[in-house]
Amino acid sequence: MEEPGTSARRADLQRYWERTLRLTVGLLLVWFIVGYVLAIMMAPTLNSIRFLGGPLGFWVAQNGAIYVFWLLILIYARAMNRLDREFDVHDEG
């Protein structure tokens, strides 16, 4: 982080943090919708739809949500590494 004292740099870092927070909140929203709304609260409804030969709600709760969880972490790691470079705060070569 060059010239951390200058106000332009400080405004830059502020923007970096705001974007980090926006990404985090967005991904956690998906986490909640998939893990709680779809997998638990909507399960009785989703079960009337067939998927892979079984009820969809059951599949989301026991398998589908896990794939989404993994994707969320992958998206976070990629997006954050890109963001780090964009704002020049990355910690490796």
Binding site: L28, W31, G35, A61, A65, F69, W70, I73, Y76
Partner: peptide
Amino acid sequence: LLGWTGGYVLLAL
């Protein structure tokens, strides 16, 4: 299944 994998999202983010 949900509890022990969904926690990793919180941990990672």
